[in-house]
Simulated assay, not measured.
Amino acid sequence: MNKTNHPYHMVTISPWPIMLSFNLMFLLISIIKLFYQYKMNLLMLCLFNMNLILFQWWRDVTRESTFQGMHTLKMMKNLKMGMIMFIISEIFFFISLFWTYFHASLSPSIEIGSLWPPKNILMLNPYDIPLLNSIILITSGIMITWSHHSLMINKNLNSILTLIQTILLGLLFTLFQIYEYLETSFTIADSIFGSIFFLTTGFHGMHVIIGTIFLIICLMRMIYKHFSKSHHFGYEAAIWYWHFVDIVWLFVYTWLYWWSF
């Protein structure tokens, strides 16, 4: 329990930040090694170490919040503000990608034939897989809201079941995105359109994968009864992140798929 005379969590000494920092440095080196020498041994080792470090770091955070009572109401307020600021930074990241897209599309340069999409770019049908993925993500947003509401009224089993459905929908979205990439007639090297398309959809897909992992961790914690209706910010943060992913996809679908078709 928190026995200090203030509501703030004074973080104890931890080996995980410095270990993760060095691991990220070696991860960058391993990626460069992969590009130039096509060797994946160091990359696999760095990815394994990164997951091991993160698991133990998150384990300590779970202990501090769930069992040691370090996350007081004041701390919860600060954590919520931190998550809001993080999501705002992510919003501006995608704004920069959309800005690039509109800068290139509203006034196409002569190098790409003054056309948008550029000549010889066969656009994907927005009413095919992209529309299906939109329905999948919107449905997942509804399911996770249902799960949150069930937790708030102490229906834990229903909350777990609807969270599982959300995770399955997230995995299904990722599988369809991979299939779409395999079927796409252009690549990231095909003019500025290919670069913007794969950069934007790729980063969104990465956020979906991260959000799915976030929800899987929350599912494990929910099964072990780490959450209550008044103390579940970890899950709430995952829900905020997932809704952010949903909303960004609506803009991606509207502008990169439907508007360019």
Score class of each variant (00 low, 15 high):
Pro108Cys: 02
Ser109Trp: 01
Ile110Trp: 06
Ile110Tyr: 07
Ile110Leu: 08
Glu111Val: 02
Ile112Leu: 05
Gly113Gln: 04
Gly113Glu: 07
Gly113Phe: 04
Ser114Asn: 14
Ser114His: 08
Leu115Tyr: 08
Leu115Ile: 10
Pro118Leu: 03
Pro118Gly: 00
Pro118Gln: 00
Asn120Tyr: 10
Asn120Trp: 04
Asn120Ile: 05
Ile121Leu: 03
Ile121Pro: 08
Met123Trp: 03
Leu124Glu: 11
Asn125Asp: 15
Tyr127Ala: 09
Tyr127Ser: 07
Asp128Gln: 14
Ile129Val: 15
Pro130Met: 08
Pro130Lys: 06
Asn133Met: 03
Ser134Ala: 05
Ile135Trp: 12
Ile136Gln: 11
Ile136Ala: 07
Ile138Ala: 15
Thr139Lys: 06
Ser140Asn: 06
Gly141Lys: 06
Gly141Met: 02
Ile144Trp: 03
Thr145Gln: 13
Trp146Ile: 15
Trp146Asp: 05
His149Ser: 11
Ser150Ile: 00
Ser150Gly: 01
Met152Val: 08
Met152Cys: 07
Asn154Leu: 14
Asn154His: 15
Asn154Ile: 04
Lys155Trp: 01
Asn156Arg: 12
Asn156His: 10
Asn156Gly: 00
Leu157Ser: 11
Asn158Met: 05
Ile160Lys: 10
Thr162Gln: 07
Thr162Met: 08
Leu163Ser: 10
Leu163Thr: 14
Gln165Asn: 12
Thr166Leu: 08
Gly170Glu: 07
Leu171Glu: 04
Leu172Ile: 12
Phe173Ala: 05
Thr174Pro: 00
Thr174Glu: 11
Phe176Met: 05
Gln177Lys: 11
Gln177Met: 02
Ile178Lys: 10
Tyr179Gly: 14
Tyr179Glu: 14
Tyr181Cys: 06
Leu182Gly: 06
Leu182Asp: 09
Thr184Arg: 08
Phe186Asp: 09
Phe186Gln: 09
Phe186Ile: 11
Ile188Trp: 01
Ile188Leu: 05
Ala189Ser: 14
Ile192Ala: 06
Phe193Trp: 08
Gly194Gln: 03
Ser195Gly: 15
Ile196Ala: 11
Phe198Met: 10
Leu199Thr: 13
Gly202Arg: 04
Gly202Trp: 04
Phe203Cys: 10
His204Tyr: 03
Met206Val: 10
Ile209Ala: 14
Ile209Val: 15
Ile210Ala: 15
Gly211Met: 04
Gly211Phe: 06
Thr212Phe: 05
Thr212Met: 13
Leu215Glu: 04
Leu215Gln: 01
Leu215Asp: 02
Ile217Phe: 13
Cys218Pro: 02
Leu219Arg: 03
Met220Thr: 10
Arg221Thr: 00
Ile223Gln: 04
Tyr224Cys: 12
Lys225His: 13
Lys225Val: 07
His226Gln: 12
His226Asp: 14
Phe227Gly: 00
Ser228Met: 08
